[in-house]
Amino acid sequence: MVTLTGLKLKNPTILAAGIMGTTGASLVRMAKKGVGAVVTKSIGPEPKEGHHNPSMVQLECGFLNAMGLPNPSYKAFLQELEFAKKETSVPVIASIFGGDADDFLKVADGLSPAKPDAFELNVSCPHAQGYGAMIGSDPYVVEEITRAVCDSVDVPVWVKLTPNVTDIASIGEAAERGGADAVVAINTVRAMAIDIATGYPILGNRFGGLSGEAIKPIAVKCVYDLYAALDIPIIGVGGVSKWQDAIEMMMAGASAVQVGSAVFDGIGVFGSIADGIDNYLDKNGHVTIEDIIGLAHEVI
């Protein structure tokens, strides 16, 4: 059992936003597969169809996607969130996005009747005009939005950060000043792939964000820097597909990990990561994951 921003998780693996999170039923399915907590698809103020396909492709080193924040709006998502809350006992975190603080408040208030266990603020989607990283690379805006949501809701607020900035720690500090209970790092890394038969960018949106194996070292460094700068917990995400990745992320400073693209290999990935973490702790004489969180900062 792990306690994270006051939430009780049976293990420190969390389903990342945007993965199997469009419907209440898919969140419940994942919860049954040994996930410690689940994060919903990012939900906004209005229905959005997202970008044209291709919206996700597997590359040689990871996955490239530009979904374009498709979502049914908070009004239509309420029933999905209610279903998830009713059918599972694992914490359900609502990921939300908007163009400004008012949007975020509207969505948070709109979803609150379903009693999400926490909110995750998406200020980091790398490929949606006017949303996500467009606002998440400005520390003042991040602080303002975080403060607005924290003042308005009575559950923990996590802020998901973009790595596509010069200094992620300064954005993390802004979230912390705004009252965030945790930061989540990282969202995808801006990237692009081109079809060499024709020269066409493969994604419908032309460019998007890279996830998977290739970005793990980037995520580890971001988590490492955030751990040095912040007092609030950090949830590590980016290229975690096996227990070794989770341990590495924790040693950089993560209190828990989120898993996304690795669902491609099978939805049972969470259980095997959680078991692997337990075995590692046992074998190395650690009592809890607290013993290894941030270890990389202490050994040198």
Binding site: I19, T23, V28, K41, M56, G260, S261
Partner: peptide
């Protein structure tokens, strides 16, 4: 309606079992 088409995003999940 498919988005990722590779079993990751969940857009095509059916109720109530979440089958993709």
């Amino acid at each position: 309606y498919f988005k990722c088409a590779i079993g990751v995003c969940g857009a095509c999940c059916m109720d109530p079992h979440g089958l993709r």
